[in-house]
């Protein structure tokens, strides 16, 4: 049984389908990346699975249970955390407060959970009383991922986690994503930096115009000449 899977999704806003017959699955402990040209529906695919874009037909299931079109609150309670691409921190709140809110749906003390996040992102511990809004782009990305990890997720969804970061920070981010994955957390991410993302991922999906185009392991997709020509810049 897959951790999360989407079957034959048709979804979009206002009756216009952006996704057409989309299939996707993530196994536990896997890093799965979605790549594709602009407007391919990558982010939409992830948002639809998380219940943010209305699904017209098809089904999303999590550990065998159907969760199509459920509100975000329920997704989070199940252990699915989502990090949007932009505006992914609460700017006027401190780092600690951002993290605390990540665990809003959970009961019990936040201390141990926060310590675990600080182990992954030591930088956040140093700056824990800082307002998130005044931090650098890289630090904000850490706050955003830390916030998502606070809910002790089994699946982490990341929408372009490296967008706008410097090359050094991009490498660091992928490394950290692998680290998070090694804690037993499944990762589904949408990426523009296709080459590095595929190198970091177990499997990848290539979407175009809202449909599945290729699906394979990361290295195999990297080696696929057609994929290379289409999205990896030759």
């Amino acid at each position: 049984m897959s951790l999360m899977s989407a079957e034959a999704l048709y979804a979009g806003y206002g009756g216009v389908d952006i996704l057409r017959n989309l299939h996707l699955r993530v196994e536990a402990d896997e890093i799965v990346v979605i790549i594709g040209p602009n407007g391919a529906g990558k982010s939409t695919a992830m948002k639809a699975m998380f219940g943010l874009v209305p699904i017209r037909s098809g089904a999303v299931s999590y550990r065998g249970e159907t969760i199509t079109n459920q509100p975000a609150e329920r997704m989070v309670s199940r252990g699915i955390a989502y990090v949007p691409q932009e505006a992914n921190v609460f700017p006027s709140l401190s780092v600690v407060e951002n993290l605390e809110l990540g665990a809003y749906v959970l009961r019990g003390p936040n201390g141990p959970r926060m310590e675990r996040v600080f182990e992954i992102f030591p930088r956040l511990k140093e700056r824990r009383h800082q307002q998130a809004g005044v931090m650098s782009g890289g630090e904000r990305q850490m706050v955003a991922m830390g916030r998502a990890l606070m809910v002790e997720p089994t699946l982490l969804m990341l929408d372009e986690p490296t967008a706008g970061l410097s090359p050094r920070l991009i490498d660091e981010t992928f490394e950290r994503i692998r680290g998070i994955n090694q804690l037993g957390i499944g990762v589904l991410m949408v990426e523009q930096n296709a080459r590095q993302a595929l190198a970091a991922a177990d499997r990848g999906y290539v979407l175009a115009t809202g449909e599945n185009r290729y699906e394979d392991t990361g290295p195999a997709l990297l080696a696929n000449p057609e994929v290379a020509e289409m999205f990896l810049g030759g």
Binding site: F50, A72, Y82, A87, F90, L93, E97, E100, L101, Y104
Partner: peptide, 23 residues
């Protein structure tokens, strides 16, 4: 309080508050 922080969070960034699971 949890609710007080959630209120500030919603005022800060409504969309993020929703995907965080704040009711």
């Amino acid at each position: 309080t949890r609710m007080g922080k959630a209120m500030r969070a919603m005022s800060d960034n409504m969309d993020l508050a929703l995907v965080t699971g704040i009711p």
